[in-house]
Design a protein around this nucleic acid. Structure first.
Lengths: 128, 128
DNA sequence: TTCCATAGGCACCAAGACGTAACCATGGCC
DNA sequence: GGCCATGGTTACGTCTTGGTGCCTATGGAA
């Protein structure tokens, strides 16, 4: 049920925008690019989002084939979210968006109002 | 007034998404990439959008520096909308989104539900 | 004077996205 | 039994989008 795919726009660029444009999807994907994550981990990594919305965004991305959800029947139960191959293929697109966002901020003299493009969920080496 | 720029997200990718994600912005930009257009022309090129929303989207893009609006005080008055340099710089980004949208449709076996990436407002040569 | 075209404003409405808070189910621990 | 953790749902409320309809201003044509 909930074949939300059917409602995606016909124009590919609008389709892509619709799939990506959730309030927290970009940052969630960034974290999932790094490695699979449990819900509780994502909650800590993105504290500003409520659990309901977090799950909602994850489920939407799952329906759109960007995210894989795996349940480990342990005690207590464990659920892991990971980026599918299709989800991973969004990385260069998000990078292009990020670079353009910086250009946009630069042209409007607001470079001080935007963060860096590279997000490193674990403290990876900050070299360049 | 209406310093909507101030409300743009801090993360550049989210900022870009917020600037681009209007129901009709992508297609309007495609038409403006081609050449400056009058409001009445855009209305014909994108008949599905109401005039109010069309103006709304154009004004938002103007505030975000993507679109330039020029008034020619003639009789009857004429107004031309064109893509700024910053707006033009969105072309490769929209192209990347379009290609990813097609890939997304392909992986979900919905290639028949999406259009081609190249939009040619005037009947340009379909070579390639 | 009325009508037409241009471009655009305003009031209102409907749907959806987002957010808050409370609640549920499982199974181990005390 | 009561409590904890996990992951998740449900019922609200609100804010933002997009959409419809109707109103304005100008100045020439009829």
């Amino acid at each position: 049920m909930a074949e939300i795919i059917k409602k995606l726009p016909v124009l590919p660029s609008e389709r892509a925008l619709k799939v990506i444009s959730g309030r927290w999807k970009a940052i969630i994907l960034y974290h999932l690019f790094d490695a699979p994550k449990r819900l509780s981990q994502l909650k800590k990594l993105v504290p500003a989002v409520s659990q309901k919305v977090l799950i909602q965004q994850l489920r939407e991305m799952e329906e759109h084939g960007l995210v894989h959800r795996e349940i480990f029947r342990e005690v207590p139960p464990r659920v892991e979210y990971s980026a599918t191959r299709l989800g991973q293929s969004l990385e260069p697109v998000l990078h292009a968006l990020c670079e353009w966002g910086q250009r946009h901020a630069a042209e409007l003299n607001e470079l001080d109002r935007v963060a860096d493009c590279v997000i490193r969920p674990r403290g990876a080496a900050p070299g360049q």
